[in-house]
């Protein structure tokens, strides 16, 4: 347990340090959201209607962008080999790394949501609904994206390949995240149904993600 805690602490520290890239994700999220009104016009009514979708797309792209570094940095300096050889089960180590990554890169996105919601003319309930769905949904994005990151690092390819592999898998999260936020704002559906399905998808990804990432690291690194 201490090994995993140390791994989490180390990963968070690296991510928040200069060159870590976690905060660049937030900046990217901010930039994408600011770009949207330029594309669809400054009509506040329209922006309110599209708000949850814009925030969710921005968060999806931002978490994808930061995932690229999840394993590559460790692979470059050799610490990934130590993690693979270590006594802690690789599945748990992968889960710890994903958790650290979410704490460093995912939580800031949620913290930035109220500010961006204000700019998109979302009221307090809408913003809190979006923030809540992001809080539940972004871990699923990180854990499924980790599979892509593990594949990419074993193949020494990143960037676009990662996006192409991960984005189709994140469609369910996007659907239910946006649906739950919309339900909270406009109805007619209850917020609970899509939200609990979103929670279920997150839980499933907690299982599939670490196992698949560990499998691909085990089979791929040599």
């Amino acid at each position: 347990m201490t090994a995993l805690a140390a791994l989490i602490r180390r990963d968070i520290r690296i991510a928040l340090r200069v060159g870590g890239g976690a905060l660049i994700g937030v900046l990217f999220f901010l930039t994408v959201t600011v770009l949207m009104p330029f594309a669809i016009g400054p009509d506040l009514a329209l922006l309110t209607r599209l708000g949850p979708a814009i925030l969710w797309l921005g968060a999806l792209l931002a978490s994808l962008l930061t995932l690229d570094r999840l394993f590559t940095a460790d692979h470059e300096d050799g610490s990934l080999d130590l993690i693979v050889m270590g006594r802690a089960p690789l599945e748990l180590a992968c889960a710890a790394k994903a958790l650290a990554h979410w704490l460093a890169a995912g939580l800031p996105l949620i913290a930035a949501t109220p500010v961006l919601g204000l700019m998109l003319n979302l009221d307090a309930t809408a913003t809190s609904a979006v923030a809540l769905t992001l809080l539940v949904g972004t871990p699923a994005l990180t854990f499924t994206g980790m599979i892509g990151a593990a594949l990419a690092v074993t193949l020494h390819r990143g960037g676009l390949l990662l996006a192409v592999l991960v984005l189709p898998l994140s469609i369910p999260v996007l659907i239910f995240g946006v649906a739950a936020s919309q339900a909270a704002i406009t109805g007619p559906l209850s917020f609970g149904t899509p939200f609990s399905i979103l929670c279920a998808i997150s839980l499933v990804s907690f299982v599939i993600g670490p196992f698949a990432a560990a499998a691909s690291l085990r089979h791929g690194l040599d």
């Binding site: 193949l155 898998l169 698949a212 089979h219």
Partner: peptide
């Protein structure tokens, strides 16, 4: 190497 990576992705896709 490609086969093992693709196998992981195929199974994740199937799930």
């Amino acid at each position: 190497r490609a086969a093992r990576a693709a196998a992981v992705l195929t199974l994740v896709g199937a799930l």
